[in-house]
Simulated assay, not measured.
Amino acid sequence: MIQLFKIVSFLEGISYLLLVFLGMPYKYLESLGNDPSYVKMFGMPHGLLFVAYIVLAFLLKPTLNWNNKEFGIVCLLSLLPFGTFFVGKYLKK
């Protein structure tokens, strides 16, 4: 399950970056055409991956013996751009 969490955390990070740095500018910048289709295209996969990330974090908490602070940091990392790429620090081998 740890390997699955690593994969989901990586994909969640990629989807978040695509949403923030491609989807949002295309939606809100007039010079790019005010096109909301990119937000729709990147938003749904990001939402699903975000939910999977949080669920897997809850499932791994007892397995990896995370205290509440470590668990909170792992969850907080999902809200920061590039944050999920650093979650490996909290995964034990």
Rank of each mutant, 00 (worst) to 15 (best):
L11T: 01
K69D: 07
L4W: 13
I73G: 07
G33D: 14
K27Y: 04
L48Q: 13
Q3Y: 00
L29N: 14
T63W: 11
P81N: 10
I7G: 07
K69P: 01
P62V: 06
S31V: 08
K61L: 00
H46C: 03
I7R: 06
L22N: 13
Y16P: 01
K93N: 15
L64D: 08
N34M: 06
V39I: 10
L32F: 11
F85R: 08
F10P: 07
I14W: 01
L64I: 04
W66Y: 05
S78E: 11
P62R: 10
E12L: 00
N67L: 11
Y26L: 02
P36T: 02
L18N: 06
S37A: 09
N68C: 03
L91K: 04
M41H: 11
A57Q: 04
V20H: 02
Y16F: 00
V8I: 13
F42T: 05
Y90M: 07
Y53P: 04
L49Y: 07
A52S: 11
T84A: 09
L91I: 06
A52H: 10
K27R: 10
K89A: 14
L79N: 07
M24S: 14
T63M: 15
L56M: 06
M44I: 10
G83P: 03
Y16Q: 05
G47M: 08
S15V: 00
I73W: 09
P81H: 12
K40A: 11
H46K: 09
M41N: 09
M41Q: 03
L91T: 00
S37I: 08
F82S: 02
I2H: 09
F21G: 03
L11E: 09
H46E: 13
M44E: 14
L77H: 10
V20A: 09
G47N: 15
K92H: 11
P25V: 02
M1E: 12
L11K: 09
L59F: 13
I7H: 10
N34L: 05
K6D: 03
L17C: 10
M1K: 14
L29V: 07
V8N: 12
G33Y: 02
L17G: 12
I14M: 05
N65D: 06
C75A: 06
Y28M: 02
P62C: 14
L56C: 01
M44A: 15
Y90W: 14
S31C: 02
F58Q: 10
Y26F: 06
A52D: 15
L22P: 03
L4E: 11
Y26C: 08
P36N: 07
G47Q: 06
K61E: 09
N65P: 07
L59Y: 12
L32N: 03
F71P: 01
G72S: 08
P45L: 05
G83H: 03
L22C: 08
L29M: 15
E12H: 05
F5N: 11
P81F: 12
V8W: 13
E30R: 03
S78M: 00
L19D: 07
F82I: 01
L11A: 09
P62L: 12
K69Y: 13
L49M: 11
G88P: 00
G33V: 03
K27N: 08
G47R: 09
E12S: 04
F58T: 04
L32I: 00
K92E: 14
T84S: 10
